[in-house]
C-alpha cells in the first residue's frame, strides 16, 4: 500500500483549475459548431446535416440547432464559410430554444438561470449526482466518469456521485429515451426529493440524435420528464459537462457569450 501512496504523491498535481482558470480545447477540436454567416443561405445547405439540425427559413436565414447536432463536421467541411467549430467546450443552456444559433432572436436566459440558482441555494457546496442511461451509445458515460478522475476532480467543487436516487440532487440523463426505459426514467425522477435538477447530457438526450424519429426512441428526454439544463455534444467533453453542472446548481447566472 505504501508503494501506491508514493506513486500517487509522485504524480503531483494535475488537476485543472476550471472554472477559475480557462481551459481551451486543443486546436482542431470538434466542439460546438458556430454559424459564421447566417444571411441569404442556400436552402440546399439543410440537406448537409444527417439529423436535420440545419434550417434555412423562407428569407434565407440560416440556423443550426446544437441540440440536434452530432458534431459530424459535414457542414464545416462542405461550407467552411458558413460553419466552423467554435474554440470552446462550453455549450450548456437552460432552455431548448437557446441551443439554436444563427439567425434567431436572442434569447435571454438570465431569468431562467436565476430561478435555478434560487432553487439550488439550499444545496450549498454538497451536491449529489445520480446518473441514468436511457439509450446512449456509451461514450457519454465515459465522459461523465472522467469528471471524477484526477484531471478534472469535481469533488473539489463539491460534487459527489451517489447510487441512491433518494439522496440525489441532480440527475444526469444520457441517451434518447427508448421505450423500455421510459418507466425507469419516470420512477428515478419521481423518487428524487426536491430541490432537484435534471441535466440532459449529450445530443441524444437533448433531441434523440441520430435515432430520433424511428419510433423506438422518444425525441429527447424532455418528451418524458422536464429538463432543466441541456448539454449538447456527441459526446460533450468533461469540461462542457462541468459547465452544465455548474449551471444546474446555480453557480453560473450570467450569460456566456455565444
Amino acid at each position: 500500500m505504501l508503494a501506491w501512496i508514493a506513486r500517487g504523491l509522485a504524480t503531483g498535481r494535475i488537476t485543472t483549475r476550471y472554472p477559475r482558470g480557462a481551459e481551451p480545447p486543443p486546436s482542431g477540436y470538434q466542439g460546438p459548431i458556430a454559424v459564421l454567416d447566417s444571411e441569404r443561405a442556400d436552402p440546399a445547405l439543410a440537406q448537409l446535416c444527417p439529423t436535420g439540425a440545419i434550417r434555412v427559413d423562407v428569407r434565407g436565414g440560416l440556423s443550426l440547432d446544437r441540440g440536434s447536432c452530432i458534431q459530424c463536421g459535414e457542414c464545416v467541411r462542405t461550407a467552411p464559410a458558413r460553419f466552423a467549430f467554435a474554440r470552446r467546450y462550453e455549450t450548456a443552456a437552460r432552455t431548448r430554444a437557446s441551443l439554436v444559433v444563427g439567425n434567431v432572436d436572442h434569447h435571454d436566459e438570465r431569468p431562467a438561470r436565476r430561478a435555478l440558482a434560487e432553487q439550488a441555494r439550499s444545496l450549498g457546496r454538497s451536491i449529489h449526482i445520480r446518473h441514468i442511461d436511457t439509450g446512449s451509445d456509451g461514450a457519454e458515460e465515459w465522459e461523465i466518469q472522467a469528471l471524477w478522475n484526477p484531471h478534472y476532480d469535481i469533488q473539489r467543487l463539491g460534487f459527489f456521485l451517489t447510487a441512491a436516487p433518494r439522496h440525489a440532487d441532480v440527475l444526469l440523463v444520457t441517451g434518447g429515451v427508448t421505450d423500455p426505459m421510459r418507466m425507469p426514467l419516470r420512477r428515478t425522477w419521481a423518487v428524487m426529493p426536491e430541490p432537484k435538477a435534471l441535466v440532459a447530457v449529450g445530443t441524444d438526450a437533448c433531441s434523440g440524435g441520430l435515432a430520433a424519429g424511428n419510433g423506438l426512441v422518444a425525441g429527447g428526454v424532455d418528451a418524458v420528464v422536464p429538463v432543466d439544463v441541456y448539454v449538447p455534444g456527441s459526446p460533450p467533453a468533461p469540461i462542457a459537462l462541468l459547465h452544465g453542472l455548474l449551471l444546474a446548481v446555480g453557480r453560473l447566472t450570467e450569460e456566456v457569450e455565444a
Binding site: 439509450g135 427508448t178 426505459m181 435515432a211 424511428n214
Partner: peptide, 14 residues
C-alpha cells in the same frame, strides 16, 4: 435490449 435504438435501420438511404 433495454437500449435498442434501431440504428441498423437508420443506415437505409444514406
Amino acid at each position: 435490449f433495454f437500449k435498442h435504438r434501431g440504428l441498423e435501420q437508420r443506415f437505409a438511404g444514406l
